[in-house]
Write a protein that binds this DNA or RNA. Structure first.
Length: 257
DNA sequence: ATGGTTGCAGAGCAA
C-alpha cells in the first residue's frame, strides 16, 4: 500500500502534473495540500476517470486539502475538532483500515508575527487531537506539508536555516518533536539517515537546480504501522517537469497485513 | 545578492 503526500501549489495549475504522476507511480492514497480550490471546483470527476475517489476541503486562493484513494474513504473529518479555523488545512479519513491525517501546516511567515503565533497554537491543537486520534486509531499515518525542517540534515545551509529562522526555529522543531513523541515516526528517517534529501525548493534563485532545499514534507507512521513500513521515498521527478509545484511528492510503502 | 519566482487576481500579498 503506497500512501503519498504532495503539496501541489494550486490543483488548477497542477492537475495535468497530478494526472501524469498518478499514472506513473500508481499510489493507493494521495494526500494533497494547497489545492487552492473551492469544493465546487474540485476536479473529482477527472480523478475518478483515473480510478481515484476524492474527499476534499478547500477554499479560494489559499490552503485546501484533499485525500484521493483507490478504495472508498470513510469517517471523513474536516478541520481539527474543537479548533475553530477559517483556513482549510486539515482532512482525515480511514482507507483500508488505516487512519489517514492530511495536514497543511501553517507557514508562519516570520518569528514574532501573528502568523507565527497562529502556527504554534495550531500545532498545539493538532497535538491534542492526534493524542486522541492515535488511541482511537492505532494504525495512524499523519502526512503532509509540515513547514518545519526537523534538523540540520534537512536544510541545505544550517547557517541560514537556524534557531532564529522560520521553518527551523527552536519552538517549531519542539512542536514537531512533540508530535513524534506521540509515537509518530518520520518514515523517511526509518530508511535513510543522510542529509541533503529535500522535498521543497524555492522557485527563486534556481533552488532546485542547485539543490538548495528543505525537507519539510513527511509521512509520520504510528508504532502499529512501523513493522509494515518497507520504504519511504521523496520523488524528485515531478519537480523537474515544466511549470512544477515547488514541492516534491513523498510516499511511504506499507507491506500487506 | 534583503534579491529572486510563482499563484491568485487583477495590486500586492503569501509562500
Amino acid at each position: 500500500m503506497k500512501i503519498a503526500s504532495w503539496n501541489v501549489n494550486s490543483l488548477n495549475v497542477r492537475l495535468p502534473h497530478l494526472e501524469e504522476w498518478l499514472r506513473l507511480r500508481a499510489p493507493d492514497v494521495v494526500a494533497l495540500q494547497e489545492t487552492k480550490l473551492e469544493d465546487s471546483r474540485f476536479p473529482d470527476s477527472v480523478l475518478a476517470g483515473l480510478g481515484y475517489r476524492s474527499v476534499f476541503s478547500g477554499q479560494k486562493t489559499y490552503n485546501g486539502v484533499a485525500i484521493l484513494s483507490r478504495t472508498p474513504a470513510t469517517d471523513v473529518q474536516i478541520g481539527i475538532p474543537g479548533f475553530a479555523d477559517e483556513q482549510k488545512r486539515v482532512i482525515a479519513a480511514t482507507v483500508d483500515g488505516v487512519r489517514i491525517v492530511d495536514l497543511y501546516v501553517v507557514n508562519g511567515q516570520d518569528i514574532g508575527t501573528e502568523k507565527y503565533d497562529y502556527k504554534l497554537r495550531w500545532l498545539d491543537a493538532v497535538h491534542g487531537w492526534l493524542a486522541q486520534e492515535i488511541q482511537a486509531h492505532p494504525e495512524l499515518i499523519v502526512l503532509g506539508d509540515f513547514n518545519i525542517a526537523p534538523d540540520d540534515r534537512d536544510v541545505h545551509d544550517p547557517k541560514v536555516w537556524n534557531d532564529d529562522s522560520i521553518l527551523t526555529s527552536t519552538a517549531e522543531r519542539a512542536a514537531l518533536r512533540r508530535l513524534a513523541d506521540l509515537g509518530l515516526h518520520d518514515s523517511f528517517r526509518l530508511h535513510n539517515e543522510e542529509g541533503g534529501h529535500f522535498s521543497w525548493w524555492d522557485y527563486r534563485a534556481a533552488g532546485f537546480r542547485r539543490n538548495l532545499g528543505l525537507r519539510i514534507d513527511f509521512a509520520l507512521i504510528s508504532d502499529a504501522l512501523r513493522p509494515r513500513c518497507v520504504g519511504a521515498v521523496i520523488d524528485r521527478e515531478p519537480r523537474s517537469w515544466d511549470r512544477p509545484s515547488d514541492h516534491a511528492p513523498v510516499w511511504v510503502e506499507l507491506a500487506p497485513r
